[in-house]
Design a protein around this nucleic acid. Structure first.
Lengths: 209, 209
DNA sequence: ATACTAACTGAACGATCGGTTAGTAATGTC
DNA sequence: GACATTACTAACCGATCGTTCAGTTAGTAT
C-alpha cells in the first residue's frame, strides 16, 4: 500500500491512495451515486467511519479521482502546446497521448467520462473537460487550415467524433489483453485519419480525377 | 399529452407516455440513481404516489425507456438483415439508421448508453445491447471478407470504434441546430469510411505503390 | 517506559430513499 | 342523475443514506 521503501509511522493500514483505488473501482462498477459508503466499507474490509479518517466526504473521494484523470489529459495537451512543428503532428501526439492516458489511468478516466454535474465537484470537473475539448478543437482547426485535414466538416464535429471514438475505449478495453496501448493507439489513429474503406483502384482514380 | 384526437375517458392528466418523457429527461440530467421519486414528482407537478398510479416502480419506468431505445436500434438491424446486396451497403444502412434512431429517440438512447447493470432490468438491457453489437460485428466481418473494408484491424475493434463514435453523438447533439440528422449521418459515415486526412498526391502515390 | 502518530470501531444521528394505503377529484357515457 | 373510468393526494412505513463522535488499537520514535 505504500510506494516508498521506508516504513510508515503509526498503525499500518490503508493510505489515501489505497482507499482511492478500491473506491474508484466500486464507483465504476455501480455508478457513483449507487455506491453507498456501506458497500464501499465492505469492499475495503473496514467500517464506514474508517473511510472518514482518510477522506472528509464521499464527494472528496470523487474529487481526487477526477483530478487524477484530468491532470493526465491536460498534461498531454501541455506537451503538444509546448512543441513546435505542424499542427497535424501535434494533434497526432495528443490523440496517441490521450489513448495512453486512457489506458494507464483507465478507472479514473472511466469515472470522469460518466460525471453528470450533480454537485459542485462534478461541475468543476465538467468545466475542465470542456476546456480540454476547446483546446483540442483549436488544434483541429489549425491542422485543417494548414491543409492537413479535410475541410468539408466542422472542426467542432471532427473533434467530438474523434474523442467520441477515443473515449469509448473505456467501455471495452481491459488491460492485459493482446492489444496493448501502442497497438491500440495505432489502430485508432489509422481509422481516424485514413478511414475504414479498403483502398481500390476506383478510389485512386477518384482522387486523381 | 394524448396523441389521438378523440378525448380520453376519465379524469384528464398524465398518461404513461407523458410521465415517461419527463422521467427520462430527469434521469438523463441527474442520472437514474440520483433522481429521486420526490424530485421527479416535483417536475411533474404531482405527488410521489401519483406516479405509482402509472408505473409499478421506478425500475419499471427505466424498463419502458430502455425498451424504447433498444427496439429502435434492433429495428434498423432487422431491416439490414432482411435486405440483400453487398455487406458494405447493408452496413452503411445500419450506421445511418443508428444515427437516425439516436437523434429521433435521443433521450431514450442516452439513458440506454449509461446503464451500469445494477438491477435485473439493467442487466437485461445490457444483454440486448451486446446482442446488437454482435450482429453488427458479424456485418463488419462480412464487409471485410468481401473486400470492402480494410483487413488490418480486428473487426471487433472496428465495430467498437464505429459505435463509440456514433454513440458519442448523444453527449453533444441537440435537435434544432443547423446540423440535422441526415447531414450528421453523412459526416459520421464520411469520417468513418474515408478518414480525416486531406487527400494528397503523396497519398495517391502510396496507394498506387 | 513514554510519547506520538496513524488507522480504525461501534453506535448513533437526521435526512432521504422507494413504496404503500385509504380515500378523493374530475372527466365521459348512459 | 348514476356509474365507470382514470387521475390524483395526504399521511405514513421501514430501510438506507452520508456523516459524526467518543473511544480504541497498533505500530514507530526517543
Amino acid at each position: 500500500m505504500s510506494e516508498n521503501g521506508s516504513l510508515r509511522r503509526g498503525r499500518p493500514g490503508y493510505d489515501q491512495q489505497g482507499i482511492l483505488e478500491v473506491a474508484v473501482a466500486a464507483f465504476n462498477q455501480f455508478g457513483y451515486d449507487a455506491t453507498s459508503m456501506g458497500v464501499l466499507a465492505d469492499r475495503l474490509g473496514l467500517s464506514k467511519s474508517a473511510i472518514y479518517h482518510h477522506f472528509a466526504s464521499k464527494d472528496e473521494i470523487l474529487e481526487r479521482a477526477l483530478d487524477e484523470a484530468l491532470s493526465g489529459l491536460e498534461g498531454v495537451l501541455d506537451e503538444a502546446d509546448a512543441a513546435r512543428g505542424r499542427a497535424a503532428d501535434r494533434l497526432d501526439h495528443v490523440l496517441r497521448g490521450a489513448v495512453h492516458v486512457l489506458v494507464d489511468k483507465l478507472p479514473y478516466v472511466t469515472l470522469l467520462l460518466r460525471v453528470r454535474g450533480n454537485t459542485e465537484v462534478e461541475r468543476s470537473a465538467l468545466e475542465r473537460r470542456r476546456a480540454f475539448d476547446r483546446r483540442v478543437m483549436a488544434l483541429v482547426t489549425e491542422a485543417r487550415d494548414e491543409g492537413s485535414l479535410r475541410s468539408d466538416i466542422d472542426p467542432r464535429i471532427v473533434e467530438r467524433l474523434l474523442f467520441g471514438m477515443i473515449n469509448s475505449i473505456v467501455e471495452w478495453y481491459r488491460p492485459g489483453g493482446k492489444e496493448d496501448a501502442d497497438r491500440l493507439a495505432d489502430d485508432v489513429i489509422a481509422v481516424a485519419l485514413d478511414g475504414l474503406r479498403m483502398p481500390t483502384s476506383n478510389r485512386i482514380e477518384e482522387l486523381l480525377g
